[in-house]
Design a protein around this nucleic acid. Structure first.
Lengths: 189, 189
DNA sequence: CTCATCTGAGACATATATGTCTCATGGGGA
DNA sequence: TCCCCATGAGACATATATGTCTCAGATGAG
């Protein structure tokens, strides 16, 4: 996950994994001094807002790139998982940072449009027989979001190989959500 | 999730959902004053250690109650999910609290024995043909752990009904991890 | 070589959180 | 009714974190 701002990237990774980290620790993780961090971001709150904005943008971009309206829903879901797997190490648990409520409301509103695209993909998959109908789109959204965090955490702890997680995720999520009887590669049940 | 100590229960729930909450906020959530909280737990660190100990104990008890050595592994996994679903609201993200490294090492060692029981259940399920063999036990452990957190989070946010989550989890996790061709209730593929 | 820009280090002020202590109050048991 | 225990509230001290500022040094461009 790359961005134009290595300080923001390092900060996001640290705060995603360690929500209670101080600004001194964030600066150290970013390889700069506290003074430089504060030159770039005037407060911890400003930093968290910026990182949260980037997280929502990255999520929206990943959903865009997954082209959820194209092809079988299962394939679209696989593409989505690929994109989100790349985001999770840097953004996964950032939502745990305290943030101004008005800003949070704005960000949630932005993310809501993107969430809706995912829901619509789930619904069309259920209508086409591609995805199981006994699972609400809400659960698909939640489980996908948290499983990419699980994958990132497993890699961070050295329990999973980074090269394996996308395949594992895709396999297990698809088999958990696909309609019974459908298999990988099938377009019909 | 009930315990003999309502202060500890409330503290665990708050810190699981909001890792950056202060002791004042913990006290408020527990319905006691800061003075009383400090009478019961001499420091934030002491509180976090106690809550972490309880989390590991509860995890161990849930794995014990799931009787992972009995019956088909898929059934054992379903029982485990049921037990862990009840734990997640109170303990899910508690691991994000900073804790003394020596204490953490002790707790990890305790949890490791319980983790091994889960791994053994996965292995015997793979040997018996009950669970898919292309997914490492590590991923089973990770995904189960984080999906129960996802379920708890979904309920907390009002997106999922508490009564539904165990069924949704069990269905989707089992279908994601079961060997291809096996179905609910089957003992053979 | 000079100058502008950026940075790190550390001092300092402020804010917040933690932890301690004291006193008044309330509840329950004898 | 009395006494003991537990509690809340708030004051206070200490620690930690945040945020600001200044100065020296390094780097790169002209």
């Amino acid at each position: 996950m790359t961005s134009r701002d290595p300080i923001a990237d390092a900060a996001a990774r640290l705060l995603a994994a360690r929500p209670t980290a101080s600004m001194a620790e964030v600066a150290a993780a970013a390889g700069v001094s506290r003074a430089t961090l504060f030159r770039r971001y005037p407060s911890r709150s400003a930093l968290v807002i910026e990182l949260s904005r980037r997280a929502v943008e990255a999520y929206t971009a990943a959903v865009e790139e997954a082209r959820l309206e194209e092809g079988p829903a299962a394939d679209a879901l696989a593409r989505l998982l690929g994109g989100l797997t790349r985001l999770a190490p840097g953004y996964g648990l950032l939502a745990l940072q305290p943030i101004d409520e008005a800003v949070e409301a704005d960000l949630l509103a932005l993310a809501a449009e993107t969430d809706d695209r995912v829901r619509r993909m789930v619904h069309r998959g259920q209508e086409s027989g591609d995805l199981r109908v006994d699972v609400p789109a809400e659960w698909v959204l939640s489980s996908v979001t948290w499983l990419v965090v699980a994958a990132a955490d497993g890699v961070r702890l050295g329990r999973l190989a980074a090269g394996d997680v996308e395949r594992l995720l895709t396999m297990t999520v698809l088999d958990g959500l696909r309609r019974r009887g459908a298999s990988a590669g099938d377009a019909a049940g």
